[in-house]
Design a protein around this nucleic acid. Structure first.
Length: 215
DNA sequence: CAATAGATCATCT
DNA sequence: GATGATCTATTGC
């Protein structure tokens, strides 16, 4: 019981609807080579049912990963500049995924600062492109298995203790032009580490408490 | 403060 | 040849 080592989340964690996985990923820890950060903001993309999703048009060389087994990384380049990390959800063949938008640095803060020159810790990973840069995640990680290997997602931050309960806020997704008002963006209420899009006006639609037996 | 321009390339048409 | 699930710097009120 005491002092169990942080273990990656099992594949069954990801084999659920993308919206469920998006919620459940909040509070979990993304780890890569000694650097880790607690996920505080996610977005669900619903595949064939969702015109805003990359997989909406079906299988292409790029979207192949999203159609594959859950628990893998889908990383793509946006605007020729930034890498964005997604987690493949849903059973194999069902192309749902979750964009990881922001995280709270936990370990390896010095390494993150080396990769991103910012003053405030809050700004290290408070956006999809900033997050991948801070954690050293690139296109090379496309297709990586998150249940084993260098890039993983694990349970809670504090070892013996359970993650403190938190509330989840819901809002429309950011930066898309289709299905603009679908409430598929999730973030931890009150977190200082969410992307800047959430501050500003009352983007919050509703909240509710969350408990999860996968921690 | 808010608004906008520019960067820059993998992927798809 | 066009298009981005973005970020930063800069300009303009």
């Amino acid at each position: 019981m005491a002092g169990h080592r942080p273990a990656p989340l099992a594949r069954s964690f990801y084999a659920r609807p993308a919206t469920e996985v998006a919620r459940a990923l909040l509070g979990k820890v993304l780890a890569h080579g000694g650097v880790s950060a607690r996920i505080v903001e996610t977005e669900a993309y619903l595949g064939l049912a969702d015109e805003a999703a990359h997989a909406w048009r079906g299988r292409t060389p790029r979207t192949e990963v999203i159609f594959g087994p859950p628990g893998h990384a889908y990383v793509y380049l946006i605007y020729g500049i930034h890498d964005c990390l997604n987690v493949v959800a849903e059973p194999e063949g069902s192309p749902g995924c979750v964009l990881i938008r922001a995280a709270e640095p936990v370990t390896g803060v010095a390494a993150m600062r080396r990769r991103r020159a910012v003053d405030r810790v809050e700004d290290l990973a408070n956006g999809p492109g900033k997050l991948t840069r801070a954690l050293g995640i690139t296109l090379r990680h496309n297709g990586a298995d998150l249940t084993r290997g260098a890039l993983t997602v694990q349970g809670t931050v504090r070892e013996p203790d359970r993650e403190q309960p938190f509330e989840i806020c819901v809002s429309p997704r950011v930066g898309i032009s289709k299905n603009v008002d679908w409430p598929l963006r999730f973030f931890i209420a009150g977190s200082r580490f969410v992307s800047n899009h959430s501050l500003g006006s009352g983007a919050t639609l509703k909240k509710h408490a969350e408990a999860d037996h996968f921690s």
